[in-house]
């Protein structure tokens, strides 16, 4: 079957990574937009959450798709990681990376796994939070905890690093690479992750530092 052949080819696997990566980035934009309402007021945020939950079907389908996307991204990423590790294991006595700033690309699987850990904690905390507590309250309580917030911020930094290679990499995988746009793309590759870091990190700091104490 062409699809199986495609998926199992080296480029196919990459395309899976990039497609799921793109969808995750899009999700993060909506999520960031939703979370940004926190800065307005707890009511706006609560309204937003309530509005969302008034369409359970949509939420279900959405959550389920998101789960699949995550799974595909993680499975393909780890598969690539292990397949490639066979190659790089003890290959040279001396290994030097020539590319500057290759930190992000080298650590993709690790930053990815850290994000996974974050997600588990995050979903345990928020999605499966007690039904009877307002979500805005949960957020405030959890993030008000210094260590919890600290962990969040660490995860957001990991996300930043992950995307500071990932965004460019995704476009490269899709075949978007043209000298005329490359400068623009490399800017976006910093700006988009930075945007996420500011929004999400801002929320966490907001509560962590006690600014959101009266939320």
């Amino acid at each position: 079957m062409w699809f199986v052949r495609f998926i199992s080819s080296s480029i196919g696997k990459k395309i899976v990574m990039a497609t799921t990566g793109l969808l995750l980035v899009l999700f993060l934009f909506t999520h960031a937009a939703g979370n940004a309402t926190i800065f307005m007021s707890s009511e706006v945020f609560q309204d937003y959450a309530n509005e969302l939950h008034s369409h359970p079907l949509i939420v279900l389908v959405f959550s389920f798709s998101l789960l699949l996307i995550f799974l595909a991204h993680i499975v393909a990423g780890l598969y690539l990681f292990f397949e490639n590790r066979e190659e790089s294991k003890s290959r040279y006595v001396v290994t030097t990376r020539v590319v500057e700033n290759s930190f992000a690309s080298r650590t993709m699987p690790y930053t990815g796994l850290f994000i996974l850990l974050f997600l588990l904690v995050h979903i345990m905390g928020f999605t499966f939070s007690p039904e009877d507590v307002l979500i805005s309250v949960t957020v405030k309580e959890l993030l008000g905890n210094f260590f919890y917030s600290f962990f969040y911020i660490a995860a957001f930094i990991a996300l930043f690093i992950h995307l500071s290679h990932g965004f460019w990499s995704m476009l490269q995988t899709f075949g978007v690479n043209h000298p005329r746009y490359n400068v623009f793309i490399s800017r976006l590759t910093i700006l988009i992750p930075l945007f996420f870091l500011l929004i999400f990190g801002g929320v966490a700091l907001y509560f962590m530092t006690g600014l959101g104490a009266n939320y």
Binding site: S9, S10, I11, K13, K14, I15, L80, E83, N84, E87, R97, V98, V99, S102, S105, R106, M108, H165, W168, S169, Q172, T173, F174, G175, V176, N177, H178, P179
Partner: peptide
């Protein structure tokens, strides 16, 4: 192995072959 866009290849290539070609290959293949 599989390409993970590490760019090392381009950096050592004695003929300066650009990874733009890899992007093109991805497109061609898809």
């Amino acid at each position: 192995g599989n390409c993970t866009n590490a760019k090392e290849c381009e950096a050592v290539c004695p003929k300066g072959i650009s990874i733009r070609n890899i992007a093109r290959l991805n497109r061609e293949y898809v």
